[in-house]
Write a protein that binds this DNA or RNA. Structure first.
Lengths: 277, 277
DNA sequence: ACTTTTTTTGTAGTTGTACTACATTTCTGC
DNA sequence: GCAGAAATGTAGTACAACTACAAAAAAAGT
């Protein structure tokens, strides 16, 4: 939220910017202020404050205050959440954790529950599940495989374009492909998904909304991540993807019912032997 | 906040309890409701709603809404955050995300900054970095490798006990092993770490505090995760591990300075070619 | 350089919301 | 069953949020 204000500030008019400065200077104070109080502090008129709220995409002042309060509560305080070269380790920790938390909360707020439900339906009744992804999304695919195979579903993960294109060709109706690509624009992935669809398989995408991959899928789940494609490495994105996979896995697990729980217990005890007491 | 309402509910009067039920049932809706709307839904009069707010120690309805909004944003919203078999998809989403966020915030609060700094020191000056982990932690190891190799450091990840025990034997002083095990009790991993230490390599552990693995390492970073070893699959644990790896990677990147940033830009443009416009 | 048009900002007024004082109802103890 | 106390609702008030409009400032055109 504070980031958003910072971002939109240059596009604002002079007097609205005064309001923005006031909010950024002492966000905590603002959430208990009335319009009049904030207007006085920013030395502008009351409607200007309202216009400022509207410029941020809020319904009005109340809505603005609510959103601000929420964003402050999550501890995500840094206006520039991008790490700077001269940050102390303590700050780096805070910023990285905060940006992960912020991405998660944002995604939770705007996640398409209907799509989740559709995806769970498909996965729960799948004969076989294949996860495709490259690079960072490849890790997510591996993680998903690791989670789903415990649910006693035949599952594989492919992170190689040639391999998944071949595998996609021999899919059959009843099989499900989960295609993971943060941008949703990976050429190789899209090609394999098209092959999979032609073979009659269902497709679940974890990809940016409106992307080519999203359009191709029977159910698309889109993580909400910052636009600032950071100079460093995509990070929060994978975290969100992983949690989405968690949701799907648990959703499927719940469908499978109690006998699955028993089976999970069994894998757990087997694992114990690999550990020290 | 919701917990507080739950706690205070028995001490409330009958009609105030109706309001409490309404708030607990759909907290999200309430934050955008007016007094009149909430009163109508709870089938009580408007002053009753205000009395309800006062009973919770709030100044009034606005204050109540603000606090509620904050507590909802900060994560752990469900009184029992463990997923139940009869949860609706919407609830599953909320609970899974919430538990991830809660784990992250908890870890951020109690992370050992000194250990982080020591780990970054070791990694930044490493000649070669090897990541070891099994199962879910194996995914974390792969992810770490994927992140660190972009920092132009010779890096590998091993998720096989035989392989990493062999590799550990041929390490030299100046090399760094990052051992990832959530419990910190994996026999195979501990064995390889001992071999690595004998060979003169430095060891960074991402493991539970006080565990055997933690004792063996030069720097140990411990995630804070729920004790409730869920019936289902370990989930939040990996998320926290991944974010810790993010912190380490960024810490190292910052040490490396601006020439690294240029190199990262290069990998980015190369990747573009694999994508659709 | 002056006028016209557009944009930006403030003023005054309206609506609706939160809150208060008081009346009515409901419960409890004698 | 009645008196007192507690709880709930009704009616009214004050104030906050928002709107319509007008004045001022800036931008564009002549």
């Amino acid at each position: 939220m504070l980031n958003q204000i910072e971002t939109l500030k240059p596009r604002m008019r002079k007097s609205e910017r005064k309001v923005a400065d006031c909010v950024l200077a002492q966000p905590d104070t603002v959430i208990s202020d009335s319009i009049a109080a904030l207007a006085a502090r920013a030395q502008v008129s009351e409607p200007t404050v309202i216009r400022f709220c509207r410029a941020l995409g809020c319904d009005g002042y109340q809505d603005f205050k609510l959103r601000l309060a929420q964003s402050l509560a999550s501890g995500v305080r840094f206006v520039h959440s991008v790490v700077a070269p001269d940050d102390a380790p303590r700050q780096v920790v805070a910023k990285v954790f905060d940006s992960a938390v912020a991405s998660l909360l944002r995604t939770r707020a705007q996640l398409d529950t209907a799509a989740i439900e559709r995806a769970i339906d498909l996965l729960a009744s799948a004969r076989k599940i294949e996860f495709y992804g490259h690079g960072a999304s490849g890790i997510v695919a591996l993680d998903a495989q690791h989670k789903f195979f415990r649910l006693a579903v035949p599952t594989v993960a492919y992170i190689d374009a040639h391999v998944h294109s071949m595998s996609a060709a021999i899919l059959e109706p009843g099989d499900v492909v989960v295609a993971i690509s943060h941008s949703g624009r990976s050429k190789d992935l899209i090609a394999s998904v098209q092959v999979a669809r032609a073979a009659g398989a269902a497709v679940v995408a974890i990809a940016a909304a409106g992307s080519p991959l999203a359009e191709l899928a029977h159910a698309t789940i889109s993580p909400a991540v910052d636009e600032d494609t950071s100079t460093y490495i995509p990070m929060s994105s994978r975290i969100v993807d992983l949690v989405i996979v968690d949701v799907l896995a648990i959703g499927v697990a719940l469908r499978r019912g109690p006998d699955l729980v028993r089976r999970l217990e069994k894998t757990k005890t087997t694992l114990m032997e690999k550990h020290l007491s």
